[in-house]
Each structure stands twice: as C-alpha cells, then as structure tokens.
Design a binder for these strands. Structure first.
Lengths: 134, 134
DNA sequence: TTTAATTAGGACTTTATTATCTTAATTTAA
DNA sequence: TTAAATTAAGATAATAAAGTCCTAATTAAA
C-alpha cells in the first residue's frame, strides 16, 4: 500500500473539483459523494482535513459546499496526501521509522533516504492543473 | 505509509540473515526475534510467507531455524515487499485501484502508471547484497 | 422568522491489521 | 525411544482504520 484509502478519497475529491466547469462555485458534498460513489459522511471528514490544510474551502447553508481554496497549479499530489497521512508521509525510514535517525541509522537509511526523496519529488511535481478540463 | 508494518518486519528479518556471518547456517527465530526486538510469533508468520515466496528456507528441530533460500544479490526489496503485500503492490492505480483499467482509466491513470513504474524500478534495483557484511 | 440546505464534529460500529496464545508437526540428540 | 528444540498453523485478542449515524452550527431564501 502506498497511501491509505483516505488519501485516495482525498485525491478523488480534489480531482472532482478540478475537473468540473470553472463557472461553478461551491459544490455540495452530497452531490459529489453520489457522483463519485463515496460515503457522504466519510467524504465530509476528508473534506474537513483538506480545509484545515488550506487546500479546500467550504461554505455552509443553501448553495454551499466545497471548492478549491487555491489554483490547481498550486496543489500537488504531495499536498493532498501529506495532509491526510500526516507529516510522516515519505519522511521516515522504511524500517523501524521511530528508531532510525541520522545518528543511529538503520541499514537501509542511506539507500532509503535517496529513494524516498525521489518519490517525494514525483509527488511534489504532479500538480492538479494536469487534470483541468479545457 | 509506503509499506505495511509486516513488510518492515520482513525486510528486517532478511537483513538480519544477510548481515550475519556466512558460516552460520540456520538461525532460530527466537534468537532473531530477541535481537531485533520483534514478537517471536508474529515473526514466525512473516517467515512462513517468505518461505512460500522462495526467499527463505526453514528447518525444524534442534539447530533448525531460518536461512536465505537464495543469494543476497538475487533478493530485491521488491521481492520481499511484494511477497508480503501481495501482487497488487505497485501494480495498481492510486485511486480506485479496483475500478481503474486501461480501457476505463481514472484521471490519474497515465501519470500514475509512469510514477509507479519508476518506484517499482527502485524497489527492484535494491538488492540485499548492498547490505552484506564483509 | 421559520424552514431547508448545507458543513462541523462527536460518538459509535464495522472491518482489517497486528499481535498473542496454544497446540501440532518435525527433527536432533541423549 | 524419549525429551528437547524448533517451525507450522489455527484460534483468539487488541489495536487501528474505515465507515456510519446523530446532533449542532451556519446560511440563504421563502
């Protein structure tokens, strides 16, 4: 598993907002949940995390819903996934992440720090404007 | 999370066998569990999976234990992790892995298939001989 | 100003993962 | 041939992740 299911859902939610027509403002979560076949309540929790991370904004009441808080080109895959998975995402050693440190490295430490830095770059370099509908 | 804790343990187990003196044959799991501070019983289950995957071999009875079934240079990180995580490891799309297919691709399909192929290459190219003690 | 539409967030339930416990099977050596 | 040392594997328990449900808070419009 590369990311949790919560991260998958978060990516789907952002993709939904990125690919829908620009003129629309807030999209209600119940409509999104139905269209992408996810649980409305669970999606609400995901949305809250993304709001706290500054990726989405919400508005309550009639005609309310969620919307992107910044431009698609300013939202990377890394932003979304690290918001859900926490700071530790791609920031730890592969084995015994809690024990391994630069001054007490595990055998994989050097190899892995290069690998995860490469993977992190990939996640940082995929931004949501790749998926904007024209 | 990039891999499950079970995969971490599997990597640790193999690393233990790779880094110990060559003249030793089978190492008993209780000794390994103690040295790397893991649950003996859980380690036993991990070992069984690695045995079925052809990475380890075991021998029961006094002086029994586990040993590498092949040379360190013939065991990659990918071998270990995919044995534990299953065939789906790095072989699926990032979102909705079950639904996404080449003929019905998710929005991330093309981007992600390149990314995961790169990550998979990294896992394939790290083999256990990098960690052999000389 | 009341009602309806929405997000916010806590409590709870279900499911999957991780971990432990117990017994069986295998093998060596006394 | 019995006892000890080991892995094999099923059953159960604990923890974490995923999912559901309920009530509160906010906002717009009738």
């Amino acid at each position: 598993m590369l990311v949790t299911r919560s991260s998958e859902y978060a990516i789907e939610l952002v993709l939904y907002l990125v690919t829908r027509p620009l003129e629309d403002s807030f999209a209600p979560l119940n409509k999104i949940a139905e269209e992408i076949s996810l649980s409305f309540h669970f999606l609400g929790k995901i949305a809250q995390i993304l709001v706290h991370a500054g990726i989405l904004k919400t508005y309550r009441g009639p005609n309310g819903g969620v919307a992107l808080a910044r431009q698609p080109q300013d939202i990377s895959l890394f932003d979304i996934v690290s918001a859900i998975e926490g700071d530790a995402f791609l920031n730890q050693c592969l084995i015994r992440p809690m024990r391994c440190a630069d001054d007490n490295p595990c055998p994989l430490h050097d190899v892995w720090s290069h690998i995860r830095s490469d993977i992190q770059d990939v996640f940082l370099n995929v931004s949501m404007d790749s998926f904007v509908k024209s």
